[in-house]
Design a binder for these strands. Structure first.
Lengths: 147, 147
DNA sequence: ATGACTGCAAACTCTTTGCACAACA
DNA sequence: TGTTGTGCAAAGAGTTTGCAGTCAT
């Protein structure tokens, strides 16, 4: 991958390169993702878009995020507890998932996962990403009585 | 954890210890999990139970698996694509998830995740488990034209 | 002009909840 | 005998699909 688009113009170029049209939802959702480093749910994207582009439909949000995922601009995290998370793919990092409340926190990447990728390839898997998922209780849930 | 129950009697003891009753669904679902090492969906548990205990309801399957999870007997995997997987927690291993078809494969564990657990604790996370999740295309999907 | 994209509504899958009956302790 | 657990049905959350109209190219 060359480098992720950092401006509207670069996104437009990337979209056209791949035969896609440049539309308001695409520009604005990408702008939102550029400015917010954290992960967002589809619903959060929708409400964050309420000012600039009210009335954007849920299917459009999903379609746009799926397109961005195919273009390698975001990664979809499906941690089960509630809605899927979409995060701009920048530096590699890991995730900690709270078993009780479903909260997902970012952890700075550090573990070498080359061995895991190699094992996946040995199993016939065309792997392109690996991350560590830590499970347990987040600080808030652990404080509110263990479970 | 001492060791996972390997017989009906040991499961019964564990259940009573924790103030739970010993019932047919619990015994039979646990027996099923003991015999099958792989991960199963709730629906697969249900159909596998059709012979020994027909008519077992979906809510009961979920309730039983959730109880087992609380007792530390199974781990729930929620990889987004479709139904959650429940696997008997035995040796530590990692998972490879196919981005296209959602298939989840087991990979023998190997990566040391002590550092990731430590980082999670540094973030206030009471972490009790860590695994590597590899994403990409499984052999079948990779063969059927890349995407 | 033409076909991709959007919005609306509704369908779909998976999981959970509410309530009455059954059965473990 | 007193609850806990079960089954049934229905609700709920999140995501996807079908279709008609709109807009980028």
């Amino acid at each position: 991958m060359p480098h992720p688009p950092a401006t509207d113009a670069e996104l437009a170029g990337l979209l056209r390169e791949h035969g896609h049209r440049v539309t308001s939802p695409r520009l604005l959702i990408h702008r939102l993702l550029r400015h917010r480093a954290e992960h967002l749910t589809a619903e959060q994207v929708r409400s964050a878009l309420a000012e600039q582009l009210p009335g954007t439909s849920v299917p459009t949000i999903y379609a746009t995020l799926e397109l961005f995922e195919q273009l390698g601009l975001v990664r979809r995290l499906d941690m089960g507890a509630g809605a899927a998370l979409y995060e701009p793919r920048t530096d590699r990092h890991d995730h900690a998932v709270c078993r009780r409340c479903g909260r997902v926190e970012d952890l700075p990447g550090g573990t070498s996962l080359a061995a895991a990728l190699r094992r996946a390839h040995d199993h016939g898997f065309a792997a392109d990403h690996a991350e560590v998922v830590v499970s347990g209780l987040c600080a808030a849930c652990a404080g509110a009585g263990a479970g």
